[in-house]
Design a protein around this nucleic acid. Structure first.
Length: 519
RNA sequence: GCCGCGUUGGUCAAUCGGUUAAGACGCAUCCCUUUCACGGAUGAAUGACGGGUUCGAUUCCCGUACGCGGUACCA
């Protein structure tokens, strides 16, 4: 029993999301976070955010904060991160710089890696001299490393001298000539590669920073990561990572891998990019992102009017489903049902129409109180100030089924707050006549006399006058709507009249009468 | 070029050898509603191709085609 408990504790699930802070957070990135989060929560494990900022040239200030804010908005907070802290700090690779060199040197000592002194120009020269029709991109591999400037081809004393002289160099992995590396991917099953086809990846760069290949292995090991999920684009370099786990002597603690399918552009093929969103008119980033260098601005799902619940829901279903046919899930439900073996192998084209449907579903089913802060924000952005929250709550309940995006609440409910400035008179003009004009003129009097300003009373007054005048109620409802709303949309007219009050209703009728007369 | 991974309606997808091949989005028609929606009903639309294995293949195997990813001192 004791043993069992120990085993259970030692295999506690730990996963990580490891983005590089180079720009806005792509929807595919959020999905990777989600699957990590869901898997961790499902198994009672921990979710770590690690920042992969080993490329100083691509570092973008603000990107890390942005990523954290995205996770917060989605409700996918990490247990450990640069700001949350944790037992394995630091969580920024740039702050772990010294750690990596030691392991790289260890690999050199054991012959699994070597120093390489080739300059960028020399590498370029190598590529162009060996470039041919059947080999358009020559690799620094077992066939070519013997022809390059490295500790395999140079004498020991020369290598020592070069290093002592401070000549810039990198450390590259020394891959076997012909070995099969295979592993079991949680999504794809058995995957294997031959080392002959992969190059001697740089492990440690000339500036002392590790490349992703070294850093991901060292950090996953040190942070006790049990399951490593990443995009499918990493599959080809998986053998390098697996060999590294082996060469470093950590094979027993290597995480289980899962390579997630890509999210594809809706038209054509290929990975979905920010450009596709710009081109097709939908967001790709989770939140607004402004690149501090180019000042390039990109709208996010949040600002576009998506609810985080919907965003998370739609992302979960993009590449996974539980087989039941249900599509609307809360985070809690997703956590309970998620499993990696139901993740698809093939990439999924992003469908913005379906994304909007998810949001619409969430808005329709959300309690008005949940929507209140967001709706108030939308109204305020359109210069509608809200004094009475309970009034807005009632408005939300009346119009939410008509709102696909949060931003739709503006045009769907503006008439509850402001007198419409322009009326769509064209909708009633063709059938407008003197009888109707008289009806509305008299209607104002009847309404003024009402003691109980309820929708039912208004409707009764409206209908009995119509009967007296011998006009079909249906013929009168549209004009009434146009006067109150301004257009052919919105909830039941009598409800609207009841909401905006007697004075405002009469005022709008008179204004409408005037417009219909002059036009 | 080479290596790897994929491929069920327009899109997301179920099926774990035997089904009339679910369901959802979108689309169309109808009902409800004398607005717009919501809701309800109906419909059109799918296994890339060729070989095997099998009594039986969408499902398993092998090819081919196509697509994607990788092929950096980027992640």
């Amino acid at each position: 029993m004791k043993l069992f408990i120990f085993a259970a504790m030692s295999t506690k699930v730990r996963v990580r999301f490891a983005p590089s802070p180079t720009g806005g957070l792509h929807l595919g990135g959020v999905r990777t976070v989600l699957y990590n989060y869901l898997f961790a929560r499902h198994h009672g494990g921990e979710f770590v955010l690690r920042i992969e900022d080993t490329d100083q040239a691509r570092f973008v200030p603000g990107a890390e904060e942005y990523i954290l804010e995205c996770l917060r908005w989605c409700g996918l907070e990490p247990d450990e991160s640069p700001v949350h802290g944790g037992p394995f700090a630091p969580y920024r690779q740039s702050e772990r710089k010294e750690i990596y060199r030691e392991y790289a040197e260890k690999l050199v000592a054991s012959g699994r890696a070597y120093y390489a002194f080739d300059t960028p120009e020399e590498l370029e020269a190598m590529r162009s001299t060996y470039k041919s029709e059947e080999n358009p991109s020559p690799q620094y591999d077992h066939r070519l490393r013997g022809k390059m400037k490295n500790s395999l081809t140079l004498g020991e004393s020369e290598v020592k001298k070069l290093i002592a002289d401070g000549v810039p160099h990198v450390i590259r992995i020394n891959l076997p000539e012909n070995e099969t590396v295979s592993f079991t991917d949680m999504i794809r099953g058995e995957v294997s590669f031959n080392t002959a086809t992969v190059d001697d990846k740089v492990l440690l760069k000339h500036d002392g920073m590790p490349t992703y290949h070294l850093a991901v292995v060292v950090d996953d090991y040190q942070m006790k990561i049990t399951h490593a999920f990443r995009g499918e684009e990493w599959l080809p370099s998986a053998p390098v990572h697996i060999l590294l786990w082996d060469y470093l002597g950590w094979k027993e603690s290597m995480p289980q891998w899962a390579h997630l399918p890509l999210i594809l552009k809706p038209d054509g093929n290929g990975k979905l990019s920010k450009r596709d969103g710009d081109r097709l008119g939908f967001p790709v980033f989770a939140m607004n992102w402004k690149d501090p260098r180019s000042n390039d601005f990109t709208q996010g799902f949040r600002e576009r009017g998506f609810l985080p619940e919907a965003f998370v829901n739609l992302l979960a279903l993009l590449g996974w489903n539980d087989g039941s046919g249900t599509e609307i899930f809360t985070l809690e439900e997703l956590t309970a049902r998620f499993s990696m073996d139901r993740v698809h192998k093939g990439g999924a084209k992003f469908d913005y129409e379906k994304a909007k449907w998810f949001n619409h579903e969430w808005i329709k089913h959300a309690p008005a109180e949940r929507l209140l802060p967001d709706v108030k924000k939308v109204l305020e952005q359109n210069n509608i100030s809200v004094a009475d929250d309970s009034y807005v709550v009632r408005v939300i309940d009346m119009v939410k089924e008509r709102c696909t995006l949060l931003t739709d609440f503006y045009e769907q409910s503006a008439f509850f707050f402001n007198t419409p400035s322009t009326l769509e008179t064209g909708a009633v003009l063709p059938k407008w006549n003197a009888d109707k004009e008289v009806f509305f003129r008299e209607l104002t009097g009847r309404l003024d006399a009402l003691t109980d300003w309820s929708a039912a009373e208004i409707e009764t007054a409206f209908k009995s006058l119509a009967a007296e005048k011998n006009i079909k109620v249906g013929e009168l409802q549209l004009p009434f709507r146009i006067m109150l709303v301004g257009g052919k949309f919105g909830p039941a007219v009598f409800e609207i009249a009841s909401m905006i009050g007697a004075g405002e209703t009469v005022k709008r009728i008179n204004a409408g009468l005037q417009q219909l007369a002059v036009s």
